[in-house]
Design a protein around this nucleic acid. Sequence first.
DNA 1: ATGGCTTCTCGCAGAAGA
Length: 271
Amino acid sequence: MTLTIASWNINSVRLRMPIVKRFAETARPDILCLQETKVRDEDFPFSDLRELGYDHIEISGQKGYHGVAILSRLPLEEVTRGPFCREGHARHISARIGAGTGAAAGLRIHNFYVPAGGDEPDPAVNPKFDHKLDFLDAMTRGPAERHLVPERAVVVGDLNIAPLETDVWSHKALLKVVSHTPVEVEAFARVRAAGGWVDAMRERIPPAEKLYTWWSYRSPDWSAADKGRRLDHVWLSPDLLDGLGAIRVFREARGWDKPSDHVPVTAELRL
DNA sequence: ATGGCTTCTCGCAGAAGA
């Protein structure tokens, strides 16, 4: 079977419902991981999303900020959620695809929203940047109780770091801009190396090619200026690499009505 | 020219995003 997994920072799930519907009907992912849902659990729009075919929904939300969700056509089990690294933010949820789903059974999906890190890339003066680095350290340790182990597992989400020179519109211009500083890129590499995670997007789109998933709201003509960054990622445990099919970055979604500043990414997995 | 915008909140201005 082929499973399509999508990741999208939608910057408010309630405001973005029309384009979530449009994306779900276009790409028809089996699993849709959302970040920045910005809604309390009790106000989550379950029924609108079930109408799109996602009968199995697991969420971790909070008021106003952050929040992550896994929407699935297949049953989910063994959900982990809750604060991943101090501050009590809703920035991580994981679940396993349940039994009775054939070859997909047992696959674990991790959905992360890594802290953006504020403006100043110095942990000594900027607590948000300090939190970001600590969060990445927590991911590196791969705490067993969170099941962050690189076996039959997928990590997706807004990791808020553009690691390669080709993941930003200008490597030189962004070297001191949070999301592309060397200290972040190195921490990012440590997280990936610690688990042996495979960068699925760069398995399909050559590292020499520019690749972005985010364009600032402040750019009046985002497409022509094209000052993007690749902040959203899909990682696979090495055992899943042979089954990797197409990767798609839905750049067109940035031009939809009332867009998020991030676009969705999908990965096909043959299981 | 990375902030020119966009989101949230017991809003009407400020914090946060990246």
